[in-house]
Design a protein around this nucleic acid. Structure first.
Lengths: 342, 342
DNA sequence: TTGTAAGCGTTATCAC
DNA sequence: GTGATAACGCTTACAA
């Protein structure tokens, strides 16, 4: 069959067998020399190393994966790549994988429905990943079943759950939203708006957590609970704060479930003479790097995104090494960063 | 050998042979039904489709890649994931690959030396990618040779080159820098600073392009040409503009080779009573989404990052389909977006 | 410490 | 239109 890219000037890839022949040993010895050097005698090992270099041998992970049922690849499913939040999670994951010589296949779910995530997961299963990192804990039953059927270890990221049978690394979005609500109440605000975009399960929980706190204090006003499905952005934040102030004069604070919305609001306020925090207090979510520099610097909820990526990758690798391990949950928390906007 | 993850409750993965047995045809017929449905008779095809669904068959790309020497994977090598610029390039690439059922392996070179890029490339070659997308055109000879040895088509992104033997999709960083310089000269500035961080070959060219224009006009001052190796960020921009104004009173304009530096400068100026653009004109590079909203909105050079990603992926796929194709170069240009900061 | 044989799940080739 | 057979390059199991 020789599945070569049958072109005129094709040069066969150097294989383990080529190296073995060159050294005068069998292929399996080369295989061992590369994977477990200590199981091969020193002189042979050295000749193999030298021959690999000289012949420009690059091992085939494809063949290795097929033979060993270990692809040294994990799949990472995130909602978006253009949202810096997930990019930082991925950066954390990469730190861990690089050290272990694992590669990462990134899948973008695009904030779509659960069916889309199922399709994406099936696509990724074709690559036989050794493990999967998922965003959030709201996967469909089908996704859970598929992971079981293919016995692929999974770790959920960026949220928390009561379930003891699934591993996750994240924080409680509900609690984090509550922190924002409590802070605004404590600073004397009584007409607090909640503004969210995107409306994935996590941003919804961030809003609900805040709402519950306001409600318990008797200061919740449904008219100030504004949730739009559009994707989160600076212009949207500017637009929403403008509308909010026009329609609700009494409003004296806003909690945005994403920093970019808050940035847009701050920019609009500074350009339109709305004093922050005197007239309007603003709180964001996620603590983007620009949030320390906006006019004025933004009070926000810091989330440990890189660390979530790192810990999730570590936990996943542990489960790959030993599939018998019980599920683990790691809550890394979220905390208020108080700056001048509130 | 049976390379199974030998655990107690292991369930063998459903294979093509299982589907074939179920339907009562040979494996190769199943293979054909999935890849070229029209080459299989309709009744058989339907029974195969049905059996695949019923048995939960997920094809193995690993086996497919080994047998066909087509991994349906491409490698994308970029300097950083936390820099939004490259994330947008990746987003563009993904658009094209998704439609063609290709996956992407992302490698981060980390702005390191060329040796690091060589090591990274070798790692990626282990996965036998069908093609490679590289950032910039300054790869070492070794990288070029490796790509040739493994006959992997490559397309360079985000810069331009005179060489006719390499494919690239990007723009001239030199010309883009010149645009910034010319604009500042045309608006009457005579003491123009050039400020760059990171100092990869592309940002260096962006500076040099500006410098050459200033020099030709007789308004280049080496003391105002400030290039630091640190990575580009908002705080760094704030720090550098402060230093600049303190040490060079006459300076009346700054060209930053990255928007985040410019953002930092604008934030610092607005917080310290430096009038932009009256006292100091500011020009950035890349047109980040926040640049339309800074105080004041930032004049910058827009670069077509998503489109570069898309076109580069298209070009690469064309070269994968037909390796005989001659190299192509696509210059997508960069243009000035004039806003209130200049 | 090293080797032999078999097979991972698919596709190329050639035959029918 | 369909099938038998032999790879693809490597690793597991077992033997020496």
């Amino acid at each position: 069959m020789q599945g070569q890219k049958s072109r005129a000037s094709f040069r066969r890839r150097t294989t383990m067998a080529d190296v073995a022949r060159d050294v005068g040993v069998s292929a399996i010895t080369v295989s061992r020399a590369l994977r477990n050097p200590e199981t091969v005698s020193e002189p042979v090992r050295e000749r193999i190393t030298e021959a690999c270099r000289r012949l420009g041998y690059v091992p085939s992970r494809v063949a290795s994966a097929l033979a060993s049922a270990r692809s040294k690849t994990i799949s990472v499913l995130i909602p978006s790549l253009t949202n810096i939040v997930f990019v930082e999670v991925v950066a954390g994951i990469k730190q861990i994988l690089d050290a272990l010589d694992y590669q990462m296949l990134i899948g973008i779910t695009g904030y779509e429905d659960q069916m889309a995530e199922e399709r994406l997961l099936m696509q990724h299963l074709e690559y036989a990943p050794d493990g999967i990192l998922l965003t959030g804990i709201d996967q469909s039953e089908t996704v859970i079943r598929l992971l079981g059927d293919f016995s692929v270890p999974a770790v959920h990221m960026m949220d928390s759950s009561e379930r003891a049978d699934c591993s996750w690394v994240g924080f409680s979005n509900t609690d984090a939203g509550a922190i924002a609500g409590r802070h605004l109440l404590e600073t004397g605000r009584r007409h607090i708006a909640i503004v969210a975009a995107q409306l994935d399960p996590r941003s919804t929980r961030r809003c609900d957590g805040c709402r519950d706190v306001l409600q318990a204090a008797g200061h919740y006003d449904p008219a100030l609970d504004i949730r739009v499905p559009h994707s989160s952005s600076i212009p949207l934040g500017a637009e929403l704060v403008q509308k909010l102030l026009r329609e609700h004069e009494a409003c004296d604070a806003v909690y945005f479930c994403n920093d970019d919305l808050a940035h847009g609001a701050l920019f609009w306020c500074s350009q339109n003479g709305v004093a922050v925090p005197e007239r309007l207090a603003v709180v964001g979510f996620h603590d983007f790097s620009a949030s320390a520099w906006t006019p004025p610097p933004l009070t926000t909820i810091e989330t440990p995104r890189q660390e979530i990526g790192r810990e999730a990758a570590r936990l996943l690798m542990a489960r790959i090494e030993d599939p018998g391990q019980p599920a683990r949950q790691i809550d890394l928390g979220a905390r208020l960063i108080r700056r001048a906007s509130s």
